[in-house]
Design a protein around this nucleic acid. Structure first.
Lengths: 345, 345
DNA sequence: TTGAAAGCGATACCAG
DNA sequence: CTGGTATCGCTTTCAA
């Protein structure tokens, strides 16, 4: 009589209750729940009816204990706030939405505790898999996960022993720089993450490489004072940009290592009274959502897609696929908007 | 000899192994793990030693089954991409970082499946608590959770039967509008979320109310054609703004219902060849991270703090505190930056 | 203080 | 096909 949700009473209906109600064994109910083909049609029907009648829902926890799984994957990020990281995370969440896995978030805000927190995820029975986003795990960490039999995939980061979703940063740096060169710029500066940053070990450095490469290919020198490295903190970027703009022969264009850096550069330029792009061209990297709003010319990488693809890979590993080390490179495009133009009059 | 991590072998060390190694019963090991005072000091020492030696880690899943808990809270958001929602989420994650709970993410992208997915979270043994972010649960949903005994707290949304972290949107709308009035504006428009949006049932509407209120208090009429409602999608906002700017007697200022809306307005204004703030003043709402970068004048609300506070409340409920319906109102400030000025020359 | 044993709620092997 | 039962690994009486 009562529809499936009206059962009212306590939520503690167990498999035994269903078994009793249907006049079958618990094993049979389990088979029905797991869509095993080894159940006679009429038996299945009876069980389903009983399930409906008493509003049975299988206990995830009990099931997990029995199966020795957690049905949870960890998404680990170095810091929660970074826009590009969040967009990737969105992709991960989307990919797992229809799966039987929960996505639990772990943010390693405090670098000093990073190792410890990471290690905890390798505890047996903690999570079934780990998606490392926007950072690169260390060898010791990788070893720990491997010996624990926990699959790991890296998104926007890399490790030679792990499947990693990456982009060709060098190519991206070239894309950005060549665009500026093509517009006629000759004094092009770079503002981006420092090489030794605690996360992002390898990745972003290539952007600077690509920049240098392009300059070299164009027969231009790359004066060290045109390269400024620092975190994406707004104030840091402001300072770096001011230094650049204060140079005797100031750059006519700046390639920023990330859109967040670019936003800071943009702001600093305006404060310095420079018109963008007339007095200064700026190109970013990532194409985060706000880039479109502010009309930022940038190198687009598929952020959301990187998360989805990483999730995809993780699901395969979870399904038993062997973990092959692999760098899966996502495509890049230059998106020309309104912060770049030929050098000023 | 070997330090805690070198145990090498399979990760399947159970409480029984420790018990055997230490020559005590499993119950005692359990007591030690849970810091029960009913263990003699020397026994505890022996157990701890054994734990260390064989690298024992208690199984979360088994513990959960025994305790009939999941040690997981769900953070439910209507869509994953919205900047303000993500900042709140950051607060939630931060608050739970040192807890024993995992935060699992649930994004209800498809409105038509919203009810179903929500309902699943009320299944017994699914999660221990639910944090609803940037939307308001319906009565039926609330009833379901209540009868399942699952605590719910709402952040940026509200329900009369639940603890809800809110802001005074009307006051915020007034703050924004009065600022514009004080600057001398008389034709002030509004662009923001439509009232009947699928999420955010009550909340943002107050912003429009506050706007109207202030206009009224200033003895000004609020012509209906100065109010444009639509989602925060970039293109929609562009259109709404263009309509406004195309008016015979165009507004000299626009109050945007959210910073995201404001960014769209800003962009549309520039496209229309208007200088901000000289030709058009714009004030947003939320103070998301990018607001500072673009110099947006806005009504700040404590986004991250709202998440932390919601998490705090949830932890109390999880700890056994009774769930009292309550609207906890967070403070608002006007942050004046560079998109507002007295009406044009 | 401590231990034996009974759950917690599934799954899956082994018979039948 | 189906059911009984051991098992997953921990917590928690209940007695000693």
């Amino acid at each position: 009589m009562a529809p499936l949700s009206e059962t009212g009473s306590a939520g503690k209906v167990t498999i035994a209750d269903v078994a009793a109600r249907a006049g079958v064994g618990a094993a049979t109910v389990s088979r029905v729940m797991n869509e095993s083909p080894l159940v006679a049609a009429h038996t299945r029907a009876r069980v389903l009816e009983a399930i409906e009648e008493i509003g049975y829902r299988t206990s995830r926890v009990a099931r997990n204990l029995s199966l020795r799984r957690t049905h949870t994957v960890a998404a680990v990020v170095p810091v929660f706030g970074r826009a590009s990281t969040l967009e990737r995370l969105g992709g991960v969440v989307a990919r797992f939405a229809d799966s039987t896995y929960d996505v639990a978030l772990f943010s390693l805000e405090r670098p000093e505790r990073r190792g410890k927190e990471f290690a905890l995820l390798a505890d047996p029975g903690r999570v079934d898999g780990v998606l490392v986003v926007s950072m690169s795990p260390g060898d010791d960490e990788v070893a720990r996960f491997r010996s624990a039999g926990i699959p790991v995939v890296v998104i926007d980061g890399a490790h030679p022993a792990l499947p990693s979703i990456v982009i060709d940063d060098t190519a991206g740096g070239e894309l950005a720089t060549r665009h500026l060169l093509d517009l006629g710029h000759r004094r092009i500066a770079f503002v981006g993450d420092p090489p030794g940053s605690p996360y992002h070990l390898t990745t972003p450095y290539g952007r600077l490489e690509g920049y240098r490469e392009s300059l070299r290919a164009a027969g231009l020198a790359s004066p060290p004072d045109l390269v400024r490295e620092g975190g994406n903190d707004r104030h840091i970027v402001h300072r770096l940009t001011e230094e650049l703009l204060g140079l005797p022969d100031r750059p006519t264009a700046i390639f920023a290592g990330s859109d967040t850096h670019a936003l800071g550069v943009l702001e600093a330029a305006e404060r310095a009274g420079l018109a963008v792009p007339d007095d200064l061209s700026i190109v970013g990297f990532d194409d985060i959502a706000v880039a479109a709003y502010v009309g930022l010319t940038t190198v687009r990488q598929p952020l959301q897609a990187s998360g989805e693809r990483g999730g995809e890979l993780m699901l395969e590993l979870l399904g038993g696929a062997p973990s092959t080390p692999l760098y899966e490179t996502l495509p890049l495009d230059l998106v020309v908007r309104k912060t770049t133009a030929p050098p000023g009059r």
